[in-house]
């Protein structure tokens, strides 16, 4: 956790993994990167040093900027933030979701800017950013309006 005890609600700050520096650097500019395997033409997430779909070497992987459009795969509401040990919601229930990016990869996130219990599987969402103290940003999502499927 970051921030002073009496400061604003704070987040657990994610470490930067051995293969993910480009991802985190781009978040500072509000760009969502995913790895793309040029050998099998599929997205790769989380970042790796080889392709888990076709076993192509790391040299076959390139970074692409994702559209930021995604579909909620599954969503739940944490009703007891204090039990989860989280402070970022200011003690209010919040939504945790798995979303499928247009690029075909899935990531965990929070869906914000709507009541947490209104987030549904199939809902169209778009990326939005929450600044972290070190200049990086955390990818969150908000409703795009309309059902994708």
């Amino acid at each position: 956790m970051t921030g002073a005890p009496d400061g604003p609600p704070t987040r657990f700050e994610p470490p930067v993994g051995a293969e993910s520096s480009p991802f985190w650097e781009a978040t500072g500019d509000g760009r969502l990167l995913v790895q793309w395997c040029t050998a099998c033409d599929r997205g790769v997430f989380y970042p790796r040093s080889f392709c888990p779909h076709c076993a192509a070497p790391g040299s076959a992987l390139e970074w692409r900027t994702a559209s930021g459009r995604a579909t909620v795969y599954a969503a739940v509401v944490e009703h007891r933030p204090e039990a989860a040990g989280t402070a970022f919601s200011g003690g209010r229930p919040y939504c945790v979701a798995l979303v499928d990016l247009e690029e075909g990869v899935r990531m965990m996130t929070n869906v914000i800017d709507c009541p947490p219990d209104e987030v549904r599987s199939g809902m169209a969402v778009t990326v939005t950013w929450e600044p972290l103290p070190d200049g990086r940003q955390l990818a969150l999502f908000r409703p795009a309006g309309g059902e994708a499927r």
Binding site: E13, P14, V16, A18, Y73, A75, E78, F88, M108, S121
Partner: peptide, 30 residues
């Protein structure tokens, strides 16, 4: 290395019940 710390932990999904809740939510949807 534990990718969950980097990619999941910041979003506050309580373990262990959170991941099972996601499975239940998707099962309900499908």
């Amino acid at each position: 290395p534990n990718p969950m710390v980097e990619w999941d932990l910041p979003y506050g999904l309580r373990t262990p019940m959170g991941p099972y809740a996601l499975a239940a939510a998707r099962h309900m949807h499908e």
